[in-house]
Nucleic acid binder design. Structure first.
Length: 833
RNA sequence: GCCCAGGUGGUGAAAUGGUAGACACGCUGGUUUUAGGAACCAGUGCCGUUAAAAGCUUGGAGGUUCGAGUCCUCUCCUGGGCACCA
C-alpha cells in the first residue's frame, strides 16, 4: 500500500459487500451437530414493530453481537440466532389501525425488519430464524400447552380479568398501567370470565430457590424475588358464631393473636353473601364495587361496615366482630384477616376510624399506641401463657399451640398468582383444546380416558384440577391453524373473534364422538416467548420441538442478554416452562433456562425515554446510510457501560465516524514496516490487548473502545506502524466495526475473514514498562512527579530523587519527616509536621 | 411507605484505597482550503496569574487511613420498580 493508491472510507461501498460474503461463506453458521466448542449466544428476540427497527434494538443487538464475535475469535463455535416475536396485541392493533390484515402485515414487517437487521452486519446464523406466528412454530407452542394440560398444570377458573371498556377488550396485567389502559388511558374495569390458567404457583418455591444458582444481573433477581413474594406465617381458623362456617385467615404474626380485636373480610369474599341483609351491608358492597381499581388503590381511607356477625378467637375464645372493608383484598391470602390494631398500621387506622378496641400485646422500645401501631420487636404481654415470649423471633411457639388446638398451622403465602393464559383476541396461537358438553354433563374429562392412564401423567401430583377441566380434551392434530378471517377485530363480549366462526370451532369429541366445540381463545404471547430459544437450535425439525441430541449439546444458552424491563414476566415464564420441561422429562441436564443473564441499559434521547408520543424516536436507517453501521454500532457502545444505556446525541456519532476514518487512513495511507517491536511498542500493544480483552469480557465496551482509541493515538504519533501493530489494532476493533476491519484486514493481505481469526494473546511480562512516573506526596497532597527509569529502584534511591524536586523541597522545608510510605513504581508519600 | 440504580468538568463519561477527570463530544487558537466542511497541530475542571506558585474540587456532614470519588455512619437530591401483600 502506497500513498498513491489511497482509497476513501465509504461505508456503503463495503458494508453490503461483506454482509453478503459472510453469508455466502457461512462464517456465522456453526455445524450444529459437530461443533466441538458450542457457545449459544442468545439475545431477546424483538417484537417486529411495523415502524421498523428502533435504535434501542440496535443497541441491544450490537451489544450481544460484540460478545458473540469476541467469543468466536476466541475459538468458540458461536451460535447466534435471530427471530421475531410477532404474535400479539401490538401487531394486531397496528393492523387494525392501518386496516391491513395482521397476517399480511406480519409478512411485510418481517421482510422490513430482517432487511434492517441484516444491514447492521451482526453475526447471525440466518439459517435458523423463527417467527412465533409461523404455524411450524406455534404448532409446538400448542404442543407445550397440551403437555402442561396433561400434567395438570393447565386448568380452567373463573377469574377477574382486566377489561377496557373503550377498546372493548381484555387486557393483560402488563397492559394495565396504574389502573388504566396503556393505549387509550381509560380506566380498566374488572370482569368475571372463565379462563385457562397455568399453575405457576406450584413452582413458586422452586422459582425462588433457583435464583440462588444463576448468574444474573442482581436487580433482575431481586425483582423476581419480590414478585414471587414469599411470606411465612400461619393460617388461623376462626369459627363464626351461630353458624357452621369457618373463616380462615393468613397472618405473618400469629404471635399477636391475643391482640386480635376484630376480623375484616373483603367485600368480594363469598361469605359476605349470607350477611347481605344486615343493616348497611348491601349498601356498602354496592359502593365498594362501584369504586374502580384505581380509586381503591389510591384512596387509602378505611371505609367499612359491620357485618352483623361475630367470630371466635381460637386462642382465648373471645367473640370479636366481623367487619367488611375494601382495604382487605380478595386476591391476596384468604381474603380475610384477623385485625390486630395495636400492631398493624392499617388495622390501627381502621380501628380509629370505627372506634374499635385495641389491645397491646407486644411491649417494646418506643411503643406509643396513642400515635401509631407498634410493629417492632418486643415481649408479649396480655397474651396468657405466651406472656414473656420474645417476638417475632419466638413466633413458632404460637404456631405449635394453634396446631395442637386444631385451629391453625404454619403456612407460606406467595404473592405470585397463577398465569392467566387465555386471550380473547385473534392474533395469537389458538389454544388446542376441544370441549364436549355431553362429557361435561357426565363429569368426564381427558383425565378419565385410557390415553391419560397410559401416559405417565403428573396429574395426581398436582391434584385438585380435575373438576376445572370437565369436558375438555386436547386436540393433538397440530397445528390447530389460525384461520384467515376478516372480522378479526376484538368483539368485547368476552369471546374471541374466532367464536363467530363455526367452520373453525365445530369439532368432534375425541372421547364420545359427539358434537363438540373447539376453544376459540388464543394463548398469551408470553407463552410463545417462554420457549423460543429451544426452537432455534433445530428450526427445521418437524418431529420434535428441539431434538434431544442438539439440546444436550446446545442448551441451555451459554449467555442471555436483554432488557431489564422483562425482569419479571418473560424471564419468569421461561424459567417456569423450563422447570416443567424438566419435570416432564423433556429435558434432562438443566432446570434453569438462563444460567447467565446480562441486562443491558436503555438508550434515551435528550434525557427522556424514547416514545412515539414524544416524537423523539431515533430511527437508525439514516445513520446507517450516511455514516455506516460500523459507526453507529461503535458509537452506541461508546456511550457508556452496556448495562447503563446512554443518551443518544447527533454530535457524538460524527466524532465516532471521524475516529473510524482515521483508522482507515492510518492503515491505507502509509507503508507498514515489519521491523521488530521495541520495548515500548511491545508494552503498549500487550497492555492494550489485555485491557480490551478484559473489558469486553465484562461488557465494558465503552472503556474497551477508549483503550483502542488510546492505542490508535499512540500509533498515529509513531514514525512508522508495523504490520503486527496494524493487525492487532484491527482485531481488537473487529467486534465493534466488523465491516471496516474486514476490508482493511483483506487489504493487509489476509485471505480468511478477520472474524474467524484468533483473538490476540497478551503476555504480562511484556507489559512492564521501562520507565515509570512516580508521584510524590507530602501529607497526602501531590507536590511533584518524576520519571524513574529503573522501576525496581529501592525506596532510598527513590526518596533521594524525590528530595531533589523543587516543589517537594519547599513543602518539606522546616518540617520533621515522621514516616515515608512508598508504593513501588507508583507513589511516595512523606508524612511531616 | 418499601426495594433497586444513580449523583464526578460545558456534555457523555474514566479511575485493584495510591497523580481525579482516561477516552471522546464541545469550545478556543493555529495550519490548510476560494468559502463552507473535512483533515492536522496546540490548548481546555474551577479560581487565580503575563506566566507560574498557592488555593479549591467527585450532592452534603462526619469518621477510618500516611492517603478516600472509592471503605464506614448519618443526610439530601434524581431516575426506575413494587405498593392497603395482612
Amino acid at each position: 500500500m502506497n500513498k498513491g493508491d489511497k482509497k476513501l472510507y465509504i461505508p456503503s461501498d463495503i458494508e453490503r459487500k461483506w454482509q453478503e460474503k459472510w453469508e455466502e461463506n457461512k462464517i456465522y453458521q456453526p455445524d450444529m451437530k459437530s461443533s466441538p466448542k458450542p457457545y449459544y449466544n442468545l439475545h431477546m428476540f424483538p417484537y417486529p414493530s411495523a415502524e421498523g427497527l428502533h435504535v434501542g434494538n440496535v443497541y441491544a443487538f450490537t451489544g450481544a453481537d460484540i460478545h458473540g464475535r469476541f467469543k468466536r475469535m476466541q475459538g468458540y463455535d458461536v451460535f447466534q440466532p435471530f427471530g421475531l416475536d410477532g404474535f400479539g396485541i401490538h401487531s394486531e392493533n397496528y393492523a387494525l389501525k392501518i386496516g391491513s390484515h395482521p397476517m399480511e402485515q406480519a409478512g411485510k414487517s418481517e421482510n422490513r425488519f430482517y432487511d434492517q437487521v441484516k444491514s447492521l452486519g451482526s453475526g447471525y446464523d440466518w439459517s435458523h430464524t423463527l417467527e412465533t406466528y409461523d404455524p411450524d412454530y406455534y404448532r409446538w407452542t400448542q404442543w407445550i400447552f397440551i403437555e402442561l394440560f396433561k400434567a395438570g398444570l393447565a386448568y380452567r377458573a373463573n377469574v377477574k380479568v382486566n377489561w377496557c371498556p373503550s377498546c372493548k377488550t381484555v387486557l393483560a396485567d402488563e397492559q394495565v398501567i396504574d389502573g388504566q389502559c396503556e393505549r387509550c388511558g381509560s380506566t380498566v374495569e374488572k370482569k368475571d370470565l372463565e379462563q385457562w390458567m397455568f399453575r405457576i404457583t406450584e413452582y413458586a418455591e422452586q422459582l425462588l430457590e433457583g435464583l440462588n444458582r444463576i448468574d444474573w444481573t442482581e436487580k433482575v433477581k431481586v425483582a423476581q424475588h419480590n414478585w414471587i413474594g414469599k411470606s411465612e406465617g400461619a393460617r388461623v381458623i376462626f369459627r363464626v358464631v351461630d353458624s357452621s362456617t369457618d373463616l380462615s385467615v393468613f397472618t405473618t404474626r400469629p404471635d399477636t393473636l391475643y391482640g386480635a380485636t376484630f376480623m375484616v373480610v373483603s367485600p368480594e369474599h363469598p361469605v359476605v353473601e349470607r350477611w347481605m341483609d344486615n343493616p348497611g351491608v348491601r349498601e356498602y358492597i354496592g359502593k365498594a364495587s362501584l369504586k374502580d381499581e384505581r380509586e381503591r388503590q389510591e384512596n387509602k381511607d378505611k371505609s367499612g361496615v359491620f357485618s352483623g356477625a361475630y367470630a371466635i378467637n381460637p386462642i382465648n375464645n373471645q367473640q370479636i366482630p366481623i367487619w367488611i372493608a375494601d382495604y382487605v383484598l380478595m386476591s391476596y391470602g384468604t381474603g380475610a384477616i384477623m385485625a390486630v390494631p395495636a400492631h398493624d398500621q392499617r388495622d390501627y387506622d381502621f380501628a380509629r376510624e370505627h372506634e374499635l378496641p385495641m389491645i397491646q400485646v407486644v411491649d417494646g422500645e418506643g411503643a406509643d399506641l396513642s400515635k401509631e401501631a407498634y410493629t417492632g420487636e418486643g415481649k408479649l404481654i396480655n397474651s396468657g401463657e405466651w406472656n414473656g415470649l420474645k417476638v417475632p423471633q419466638e413466633k413458632s411457639k404460637a404456631i405449635q399451640d394453634l396446631k395442637a388446638k386444631g385451629s391453625g398451622e404454619g403456612f407460606v403465602n406467595y404473592h405470585l398468582r397463577d398465569w392467566l393464559i387465555s386471550r380473547q383476541r385473534y392474533w395469537g396461537p389458538p389454544i388446542p383444546m376441544i370441549y364436549c358438553q355431553h362429557c361435561a354433563d357426565e363429569g368426564k374429562s381427558w383425565f378419565d380416558t385410557d390415553d391419560a392412564k397410559e401416559q405417565k401423567i403428573l396429574f395426581s401430583h398436582f391434584r385438585k384440577t380435575k373438576e376445572d377441566v370437565a369436558g375438555w380434551y386436547p386436540d393433538e392434530n397440530l397445528p390447530v391453524k389460525l384461520p384467515v378471517i376478516d372480522d378479526y377485530k376484538p368483539l368485547g363480549t368476552g369471546n374471541s373473534p374466532l367464536g363467530n366462526h363455526p367452520e373453525f370451532y365445530e369439532a368432534t369429541c375425541p372421547a364420545c364422538g359427539g358434537k363438540a366445540q373447539r376453544e376459540t381463545d388464543v394463548s398469551d404471547t408470553f407463552l410463545d416467548s417462554a420457549w423460543y430459544f429451544y426452537r432455534y437450535i433445530s428450526t427445521d425439525n418437524s418431529a420434535h420441538p428441539w431434538g434431544k441430541e442438539l439440546a444436550d449439546k446446545w442448551l441451555p444458552p451459554t449467555i442471555y442478554t436483554g432488557g431489564a424491563e422483562h425482569s419479571v414476566l418473560h424471564l419468569l415464564y421461561a424459567r417456569f416452562v423450563t422447570k416443567v420441561f424438566k419435570d416432564l422429562g423433556l429435558i434432562s441436564s438443566f432446570d434453569e433456562p438462563f444460567p447467565r443473564f446480562f441486562a443491558h441499559g436503555l438508550i434515551i434521547k435528550d434525557g427522556a425515554k424514547m416514545s412515539k408520543s414524544k416524537g423523539n424516536v431515533v430511527v437508525p436507517d439514516n445513520y446507517i446510510k450516511k455514516l455506516g453501521s460500523d459507526t453507529l454500532r461503535t458509537y452506541l457502545m461508546f456511550l457508556g457501560p452496556f448495562n447503563m444505556g446512554g443518551d443518544f446525541r447527533d454530535s457524538g456519532i460524527e466524532g465516532m465516524n471521524r475516529f473510524l476514518k482515521r483508522v482507515w487512513t492510518i492503515l491505507t495511507a502509509q507503508t507498514l514496516v515489519s521491523t521488530p517491536l521495541d520495548h515500548t511498542a511491545n508494552s503498549e500493544m500487550h497492555q492494550t490487548v489485555k485491557g480490551v480483552t478484559e473489558d469486553i469480557e465484562e461488557f465494558r465496551y465503552n472503556t474497551a473502545i477508549a483503550k483502542i482509541m488510546t492505542y490508535y493515538n499512540y500509533l498515529s504519533r509513531k514514525d512508522e506502524v508495523s504490520r503486527i501493530e496494524a493487525k492487532v489494532l484491527l482485531q481488537l476493533l473487529a467486534p465493534f466495526a466488523p465491516h471496516l476491519t474486514e476490508e482493511l484486514w483483506h487489504e493487509l493481505g489476509f485471505e480468511e475473514s478477520i472474524h474467524i481469526s484468533s483473538w490476540p494473546e497478551y503476555d504480562n511480562a511484556l507489559i512492564e514498562r521501562g520507565v515509570v512516573v512516580i508521584a510524590v506526596q507530602v501529607n497526602g497532597k501531590l507536590r511533584g512527579t518524576f520519571e524513574l527509569s529503573a522501576p525496581k529502584a529501592s525506596q532510598e534511591e527513590v526518596e533521594k530523587i524525590a528530595h531533589e524536586d523543587q516543589g517537594v523541597q519547599s513543602h518539606l522545608q522546616g518540617k520533621t519527616i515522621h514516616k515515608v510510605i512508598y508504593v513501588p513504581g507508583k507513589i511516595l508519600n512523606f508524612v511531616v509536621s
